[in-house]
């Protein structure tokens, strides 16, 4: 008997008015994996993710998380179940301190659990401890990305979804972000990674999907992807 996938998406359709952004996408994520969803700009990646966490409405199809149907559930129900999204563009709260950003990440936790989580997080991200009283908006792009991920981890997610964590960062910082993702998986967090940065994503992913113009056009292990796919076609969306 094979293990039940932690996340299962079945024939999901997301529409904005007359525009269909996601046209019947199916995917699954098993516990302990890093699964990459690759695709060019406008392929429907962000719409797919928003539908998973309830920020966009699924037109049809089904999303199952930990065996429960969460299609159409509200974000505030989904996040406490252990499904958390670190949004594209980081979206730290710029006029709150680093510490307050982290507190909000654990908004569904309380008291001692919060204090423990905070200490563990500052241990793991020394740069955030250094800057804990600074406004998040004053951090560099890389530091903001670390904060955004740390903030998501504060809710102790069973599945962490990262939307374009390397976007707009310097190459040396990007490498650091990918090392962090790899480390998180080793520490037991399952990760759904959505990226345009194909080569570095495939280097740490177990499996990958290719999303093109709202359709899943390819899936396989990272190794299969590295052999078979014309990487340029992913970048250019062709």
């Amino acid at each position: 008997m094979s293990a039940q996938p932690i996340l299962n998406v079945d024939d999901l359709v997301v529409k904005y008015g007359a525009v269909t952004a996601v046209k019947g996408v199916s995917l699954n994520v098993n516990e302990g994996e890093i699964v990459a969803v690759l695709g060019a700009n406008g392929a429907g990646k962000s719409s797919l993710l928003k539908a998973l966490v309830g920020l966009a409405t699924a037109h049809s199809g089904q999303v199952t998380f930990l065996g429960q149907n969460i299609t159409g559930a509200r974000t505030e129900k989904i996040v406490p179940m252990g499904l958390t999204l670190t949004p594209e563009g980081r979206h730290v709260f710029p006029e709150l301190s680093v510490r307050d950003n982290l507190i909000l990440g654990a908004a569904t936790a309380k008291g001692e659990a919060l204090a423990d989580g905070m200490e563990a997080m500052l241990e793991q991200f020394p740069i955030l401890r250094e800057r804990s009283d600074q406004m998040a908006g004053t951090l560099s792009g890389g530091e903001q990305q670390m904060l955004a991920i740390a903030r998501s981890l504060m809710s102790r997610p069973k599945l962490l979804i990262l939307d374009e964590p390397s976007l707009g960062l310097a190459p040396v910082i990007i490498a650091e972000v990918f090392r962090l993702i790899d480390r998180l998986r080793d520490a037991g967090t399952t990760i759904l990674l959505v990226e345009q940065n194909v080569a570095q994503s495939l280097a740490i992913a177990d499996r990958a999907y290719l999303l093109e113009l709202g359709n899943m056009t390819r899936e396989g292990t990272a190794a299969e992807f590295l052999e078979g796919v014309d990487l340029k076609s992913i970048y250019l969306g062709g």
Binding site: T75, E76, I78, V79, H91, F93, L104, A107, S155
Partner: peptide, 24 residues
């Protein structure tokens, strides 16, 4: 208070506040 922080956060970025699992 967390609710107070959440109100400040909501004023800065409403969707991201919801991503924290906070009830809008």
């Amino acid at each position: 208070t967390t609710l107070g922080l959440a109100m400040q956060a909501a004023a800065q970025d409403f969707d991201t506040t919801r991503l924290m699992g906070i009830n809008a």
